[in-house]
């Protein structure tokens, strides 16, 4: 037991000069003591380094964007969007004066939805699949975004992924599948339900299901949210 304690006290630097030189003599005489000292020293280092690495990882992780919170200032966003809308539709009226066909309407009204879920800082290195997916989406690389969102959607049961996957699918011209995801999202009663309805109506427009387009637009108008006026306008053009 005495030997036990001496080893630990030696390692903790608790021995005085005299005790220390005595102990070092003991180590020279008995290699098994020296071996034990070495073992405990390594154990101490292993524990210390591992713990420090874990804390550093925890602190670094805490800075990753959560991806779940939607912290966009909606009124501002809508104001900007409506200005853009007035401009685009004005231009459109000027160019087309007879009754447009659904395809033209679709082209006039469709624009991929902004990424409001996971704001991306360009400097930040790609840290996870989700960031990567949104990055591809923002860069307009919809084929890649499609693959990544599909994987993510399967892995996690997060409704907002369905919305973005839907828009991505529209951008890669897979409207029937996009419709499925929008319906799923709307049924989950997600926060961005009105946006999903807007895109759903456009997807129906593209697949030639005019009746469904009309019904979805009417529902959207009733909700009185996102793109309500745009919906009324589009509706008037279809009828």
């Amino acid at each position: 037991m005495i030997k036990e304690e001496l080893i630990d006290r030696y390692l903790a630097g608790e021995l005085n000069k005299e005790e220390e030189s005595d102990f070092e003599k003991m180590m020279d005489d008995d290699p098994s003591i020296a071996k034990e000292v070495e073992f405990r020293k390594e154990l101490k280092l292993a524990l210390k380094k591992s713990e420090r690495i874990q804390i550093k990882e925890m602190l670094s992780d805490s800075e990753k964007p959560e991806g779940k919170s939607i912290n966009v200032n909606w009124p501002m966003y809508l104001a900007a969007a409506s200005v853009a809308f007035i401009f685009i539709t004005g231009l459109w009226f000027f160019v087309l004066n007879d009754k447009p066909d659904p395809d033209e309407l679709y082209t006039a009204y469709y624009a991929p939805y902004e990424n409001v879920v996971q704001p991306i800082e360009r400097s930040e290195s790609i840290k996870n699949l989700e960031t990567e997916a949104f990055l591809a989406y923002e860069e307009g690389d919809y084929n890649r975004a499609r693959a990544l969102f599909t994987t993510l959607e399967k892995e996690r049961n997060e409704p907002y992924l369905q919305l973005y996957l839907g828009v991505t699918l529209m951008s890669t011209d897979d409207h029937p599948l996009a419709i499925d995801y929008f319906i799923k999202y709307i049924q989950s009663d997600g926060k961005l339900k009105d946006r999903a309805m807007w895109y759903l109506s456009l997807a129906y427009l593209k697949t030639g299901e005019t009746e469904k387009t009309v019904r979805t637009l009417e529902d959207l108008i009733e909700l009185d949210g996102y793109n309500r006026y745009k919906a009324e306008e589009l509706l008037s053009k279809i009828d």
């Binding site: 405990r40 101490k44 280092l45 292993a46 524990l47 210390k48 380094k49 591992s50």
Partner: peptide, 26 residues
């Protein structure tokens, strides 16, 4: 590498052992 190996085995010890060694040596 030796410390990695030590830590790998340390994690496999029972909870009581891990606690006592962690408290004393870390």
């Amino acid at each position: 590498p030796y410390q990695e190996m030590l830590y790998k085995h340390f994690k496999k010890l029972g909870e009581k052992c891990r606690k006592v060694l962690h408290a004393f040596y870390y």
